[in-house]
């Protein structure tokens, strides 16, 4: 009972996911199978880490539109290193992550240092990184092959890929950061009322820069998972992913206005988005129908969350 009280919203959104799974189970003969679950676990790691990073950015009251492009650039760099320069994964993976981290840091420095809204800075970064990704690869898809696939191979003894466990690790790590550390408290506080935080004698700037850095780093990590799953580095990778990530975060109940949110719930949001996509494909829905249904589910999920908050008298 206490769990229900403390984590009522988590349970609620988890219920939405289970409902969705059951719905597709009814609509499709083969949806409710271990195979589907494995497939799902294989396709979500990149979106999961990106949405996790995005959660922090939204909580602090910003937005990062560049994550998809940063993932593309990191992928491109990984492809260049591994295919053209024959650099082994253990060296090229950290470099790809650092590329994401640098992009995130630039986002943070400009947003905080020059007090430009993060929407604009990251919109610019979206273009820069995508362009750079095309330049780096000369617009060619790099087929990396087996050397990058270990990340997407199954963890021994399970039917889930290693990347899935790593991404869940990132989710748990960031949730702990948010709940248990001073930095996390500052992030939430800044998102609630940055002005008050400043007057309480806390300099909000380092925390804000750090959040963008973390988000960029997440995009870099996401690029590894993305490349591992596809076995190739595609400069187009991650286009439109920022919107999928924001959708997942918002479905998870994080406020676009900042100050409230949970990485764990974002993860469930990712599950909902991914399940919807997989389920609709499995029942063979047409492309227009897929889009309509996906949009409707986003609105419905957010409405349910808002409605529930109103019911318990929270200000939304």
């Amino acid at each position: 009972m206490k769990i229900l009280k403390d984590h009522g919203d988590t349970v609620g959104i988890l219920a939405v996911w289970i409902l969705l799974v059951l719905l597709f189970g009814v609509l499709s003969d083969h949806f409710l199978s271990a195979n589907t679950l494995t497939t799902l676990a294989g396709r979500i790691p990149a979106l999961t880490v990106i949405a996790a990073g995005m959660t922090l950015v939204l909580i602090v009251g910003g937005i990062d539109l560049s994550v998809g492009s940063v993932l593309g650039l990191s992928s491109a760099v990984l492809g260049l290193l591994m295919v053209d320069w024959k650099v082994p994964l253990v060296i090229s993976a950290p470099i790809a992550i650092v590329v994401g981290m640098l992009a995130g840091t630039v986002n943070g420095l400009f947003t905080v240092g020059l007090r430009i809204p993060s929407f604009l800075v990251t919109l610019g970064m979206l273009e820069i990184c995508r362009g750079a990704a095309y330049l780096v690869t000369r617009s060619q898809t790099k087929y990396i092959g087996a050397s990058v696939e270990p990340l997407a191979s199954m963890l021994p003894g399970t039917t889930f890929p290693i990347s899935f466990f790593l991404s869940v690790g990132v989710v748990v790590g960031l949730q702990v950061l948010l709940e248990k550390t001073i930095l996390g408290r500052h992030i939430v506080a800044i998102g609630t009322n940055e002005h008050a935080v400043r007057l309480a004698g806390i300099d909000p700037r380092p925390a804000k820069i750090l959040v963008f850095l973390v988000c960029g780093t997440c995009a870099g990590v996401g690029s590894l998972f993305h490349c591992a799953r596809l076995g190739s580095a595609d400069p187009n990778a991650g286009s439109g992913m920022e919107l999928a990530a924001i959708a997942a975060v918002v479905i998870g109940g994080t406020s676009l206005l900042g100050g409230r949110g949970s990485v764990i719930k974002t993860f469930i949001g990712v599950l909902i988005v991914a399940t919807l996509e997989a389920g609709l494909a499995q029942i063979g829905a047409s492309e227009p129908l897929k889009r309509v249904v996906t949009g409707a589910v986003i609105i419905a999920a957010v409405s349910v969350d808002v409605f529930r908050r109103r019911c318990i008298g929270e200000n939304v």
Partner: peptide, 27 residues
């Protein structure tokens, strides 16, 4: 200028004294 309205009394009351309630950054 002072309060984080949507946050708890605890979060508001300890905002300026978090280092006292933490060890190496852990709350």
């Amino acid at each position: 200028d002072a309060l984080l309205l949507s946050q708890s009394v605890r979060v508001n009351a300890t905002l300026s004294t978090l280092p006292i309630h933490s060890k190496r950054g852990w709350l």
